[in-house]
Simulated scan of single mutants.
Amino acid sequence: MPLYDPNDPYAVDLETRLVEIQAGMHARDLDLYLASRIRTMSFVLDAFVPWRSFMVIPAEGLPTVFTFVIDSARLLSETWLDEDHVRGYFGASGADQIEVIQYFIEDELGITKGRLGYESGMATYTAEGWMTHYEYERFRDALPGFEFVNAHDIVDQASLIKDEGTINRFREAGRIVDAGHKAAREAIENGGWKGMTETELAGIAALAMRREGSVSEWNFAGLNEISSGWRTGLGACTPPTTKEFAAGEALMFDLHAMFKLALGDHSHNYLIAPASERQRWHADNFVACVQFVADSYKAGATPGDLITECGRFAEERGCSD
């Protein structure tokens, strides 16, 4: 098992994480847990796993991860597992992920029947990693002696309360994003925005965050999300374009950083002078609503509660539309 260094502010106790997952498996009478989500890989392996991968967790002992063969050596170098527990699959007939995992379970683990937990559900995030219907049918046919049980809540429960190392990682990721915003503002103020495009601003912010220790702008939402003018009204996930900034426009800079798998993510909005009274009215309402949510954020509050209460607050201000 990996050694936990209490003197490292970013250390996470991976042994405890595995023990808690296996305790959840025992409580559900599961013989195996077949993980497919990115969050589960990150939680157990403490490494970046971008390719389609699966991880077999037995009721006792170490997990084994199966990833696309071109990335298996890199993953082995970054995780705590040894080469026996980091495997590559080719994706071709006879050596695809389904067949490789079937042989591993039956021939190496010696398990041919029992209860197998897997991860199925839905999310707003495309690359969540839920087992697809096709994968489910293939695994079910390959492992006919097993009862398949949707058990993603075992990992969700184990990861619900963050340890100190994880919290510190998120704080550092947030600090890195702050550095990106500082560089972005310095780049556009005092007329610096003239002739600048959304893509150029995105690069300036990305470079600043990389210099501070970010390893990725985590790209499922289009890397850093930069919009200007009419594009600020499109909502989230606005990958930057070659559109140039212009006087009188609104700007939205939503920056992303990654530090030790923790993601930093927050945005700032700007108005390029001259700002109209209506623009100032929208800006003041936005600031008031954000402050209201921050003041209402407390133990026991749910996202639904905050949305409902903020909606009422916006109605009182006449800006709910």
Rank of each mutant, 00 (worst) to 15 (best):
E15N: 14
A301R: 13
G110T: 02
D295H: 00
Y136S: 06
G300L: 00
A236I: 09
P144V: 09
G121Y: 08
N150W: 00
V287K: 11
S267L: 11
E309H: 10
R115F: 03
D5W: 07
R317D: 04
P239S: 01
M1F: 12
T238C: 10
D82L: 03
G88I: 02
W230H: 15
E128C: 05
E83H: 11
W230T: 15
R115M: 04
A179Y: 04
I272M: 04
P240T: 08
H268L: 12
T302C: 02
P274K: 06
D82P: 03
R278W: 13
Q291W: 07
P240F: 07
Y270T: 03
A250C: 11
A92D: 15
G91I: 00
A250F: 11
W281A: 14
M55G: 08
H26E: 14
T242G: 12
T67C: 13
D84M: 08
K182E: 15
W193Y: 09
T308G: 12
S77C: 09
L207I: 12
V69D: 15
R169L: 00
T79P: 06
A27H: 08
E78K: 15
H282P: 04
E108N: 07
A23D: 08
V12F: 00
A273Q: 08
I111K: 13
I21D: 07
V44Q: 08
D13V: 01
T238P: 01
R138K: 15
D178P: 02
I226S: 02
D31G: 13
W51A: 13
A262L: 07
A173W: 00
H256L: 11
W51G: 15
L14M: 10
I38N: 12
L34W: 06
E277W: 05
A151D: 04
D305I: 07
A47H: 09
E277D: 12
P2W: 02
I272T: 04
G311M: 00
A123P: 05
C237K: 14
A202T: 04
D295L: 01
G191C: 05
A11M: 01
G165S: 03
Y118L: 14
L109T: 05
D156P: 01
R37W: 06
K243E: 14
E225M: 15
R231G: 00
A294Y: 08
G117T: 03
I176G: 08
Y136E: 10
F90G: 13
A257L: 01
P58C: 06
D84I: 03
P303K: 06
A173G: 09
A47V: 06
Y125I: 11
G195R: 03
